[in-house]
Design a protein around this nucleic acid. Structure first.
Lengths: 207, 207
DNA sequence: AAGAAACGACTGGTCTGACCACCGTTCTAG
DNA sequence: CTAGAACGGTGGTCAGACCAGTCGTTTCTT
């Protein structure tokens, strides 16, 4: 264990250590982590400290633990975390407003990115999907965000989406025409048109 | 402890129990939770299980722990949570581009929010500060983000800023005139002008 | 009597070792 | 050859020990 400052809790150090380990060994979702006992030995800490770190990461949804098998890296998605955080935190009205506001702006950002960076072919393909497939709002915008090829936005949006859904707002479901229209506007490459199409779809006046 | 299903981990049950406890007793940030030993006794579980639950909540930023004193409910801020999630998620090659791109867009979002929501008085005050005070780029935009009064953006931006700075990009330092100009454009309430002022300040062509 | 030092009770931090339940592999008895 | 027992590894949980801080009380000193 790296010279853990006296003022830093061991389990935090272990979390950092795990992160490094994942980075160094280039571990990906699905890969297995060393066992608790081995970690405890390699890092010269008690197994209970290792557990505290692992349990914390587990609650965050970053790892997954299977009794009798081991601990595995997980593809981060949000899961319980959001559930938990929302029940803990979302009482605050301001938090609610922030989430809605932020989600919308992030979606607009992603549309903007697509408008500038996504190829015509991809947009065309997206359009035919939007016209023919059946999808939810989340599925539609997941595609939008994915198209940006910006992982950060993807992660942020997924988390926001989960939060957002946990708010149980009853909202108008946009029509398929509106989705298609939005994609059409992307294809025109006109910022203002995309912005307007999004506002229409979200039934927003200003935002 | 409620009849913990065999398939549910104790520490998860404890987390739920704590949530209930907080709800029932209407505990607010700053309030103290029972000691680990007392919880362990009241819930009929081992102290280590209690610790696993508490450590997880601590990593989430929901509680705060002070040695020798006790465990307290915290004013939720995200902190380590977002920090940690980012460090786990950002270990990507494209992360660099994503960070830059995302930071800029978030900053634009915040400018946009200010342009629509911030009062003239506040903007005017901001302007005189921008004209007279001495500040770094981070300090300037921190004010911008703060003005939005959107905590989510604040958290995201702070994290992004830290990562951004760790990239050690050598960048042109904008002149004070450019900052003032940006604020001026906010005061005009014209989207396009703000956008252009930002692009100028960041020396961007398209994005 | 007032201030300082010592003490004790309590709280979190960490480690150790023990036992259980569960999984997968290997070895064995039929 | 195969069903099943045995074994070794892994997480899940607990109990108890000890350290290291905090705080309030007691006691000692001046």
């Amino acid at each position: 264990m790296s010279q853990s400052q006296k003022d830093t809790k061991i389990y935090i150090e272990i979390v950092k250590e795990l992160r490094l380990m994942i980075e160094r060994n280039n571990l990906k979702p699905g890969d297995k982590l060393p066992s608790e006992r081995e970690l405890s030995e390699r890092l010269n800490v008690g197994r209970s400290s290792v557990r505290e770190a692992l349990r914390a990461l587990e609650l965050l949804g970053l790892i997954e633990t299977r009794r009798g098998e081991g601990t595995y890296i997980r593809d981060y998605g949000g899961h319980q975390l959001v559930q938990l955080l929302s029940t803990f935190i979302l009482q605050d009205e301001n938090a609610k407003r922030d989430i809605i506001e932020t989600k919308y702006l992030i979606e607009l950002d992603c549309l903007w990115l697509n408008l500038h960076k996504t190829s015509n072919d991809q947009l065309q393909e997206f359009k035919s999907w939007a016209e023919t497939a059946s999808y939810t709002d989340d599925e539609f915008f997941l595609k939008v965000v994915r198209l940006t090829e910006n992982h950060l936005f993807l992660r942020m949006w997924i988390i926001l989406k989960d939060y957002y859904n946990s708010l149980h707002l009853d909202q108008m479901v946009p029509s398929k025409e509106e989705y298609v229209q939005l994609v059409d506007m992307l294809i025109t490459r006109k910022e203002s048109l995309v912005g307007n199409a999004y506002k229409t779809l979200r039934k927003l006046s200003k935002i």
